[in-house]
Design a protein around this nucleic acid. Structure first.
Lengths: 135, 135
DNA sequence: TTGTACTGTAATAAGAATTGTTACAGTATG
DNA sequence: CATACTGTAACAATTCTTATTACAGTACAA
């Protein structure tokens, strides 16, 4: 669903943790990820709204983590960029059909439990844990 | 990633289980899902390749389950329609950057464990379990 | 107080991925 | 041989995602 975005978001957070103490510019970050700086700023807009990142405007400005990396679970990051669950239904089945009529409800139940398992696993890792893997 | 397709595939399998004994046509199935019959035939092409469905060509032909519904785990169905994992990386980070250089490997590890948790949960339900929910 | 180096955000374009459609050859049945 | 299906390819349309451009707003520093 939002694959690229999650990878981008995590990449950003990882850089900020590894270079903590410094303010990183969107251009620097964009260069590491190999995307356009505006994309980074947009993504950070969301991450900041969720408190993961703080920013400083103006000359000499840039980005830093908004809270300790150990307090940012990857599940929270993931959730921050899709309000919609992992496997949203896109078809709209025929309501005349007894199966079609009921299936969305059952699919949602199924999806939400699988989603939960997924998030639960992601939540075992924090940004700090993840960043520690780099040398 | 392949949301709609999974929903479609499961819808098809559920219909076949509920109406077992009969051969269902792509048109009948398409009507319940509310998509084009060719889409159903295409999706079934994949499900058949994995042994979940059998088909009979020609007049009076149609589809039926290729094995007992109790033996089809939803995780297998899910896997059958994406060789690629749930959260494939789409960016290609800068290999000049020490972080960019390593991140894909670490992301893959992360993704694959979350994927596993997801599939593990889906695998707790079979097509038979799922179909039983309908009345 | 002005130039410089940043962020914030909107508008738009481009590209990729998904889904739908049409068409028709192939096959079984009666 | 007519009929009713599946199988599959080619193409069109749509939707989703990502990239690009542009520029206003803000802080710093000389």
């Amino acid at each position: 669903m939002n694959n690229g975005r999650f990878a981008t978001a995590l990449h950003i957070l990882t850089l900020l943790e590894i270079k903590k103490g410094e303010l990183l510019s969107s251009e620097f970050i964009a260069n590491s990820i190999n995307v356009n700086p505006a994309v980074v700023r947009k993504e950070i807009g969301n991450l900041r709204a969720h408190g993961f990142i703080e920013s400083k405007e103006g000359k000499g400005g840039g980005y830093s983590l908004g809270k300790p990396a150990a307090h940012i679970r990857l599940s929270e990051v993931y959730k921050s960029l899709n309000e919609s669950p992992l496997l949203g239904r896109s078809n709209d089945p025929n309501p005349e059909c007894p199966i079609g009529k009921q299936i969305n409800g059952h699919l949602n139940d199924l999806f939400s439990s699988a989603d939960k398992a997924f998030l639960n696993q992601l939540g075992k890792t924090t940004v700090k844990d993840f960043a520690k893997k780099f040398n």
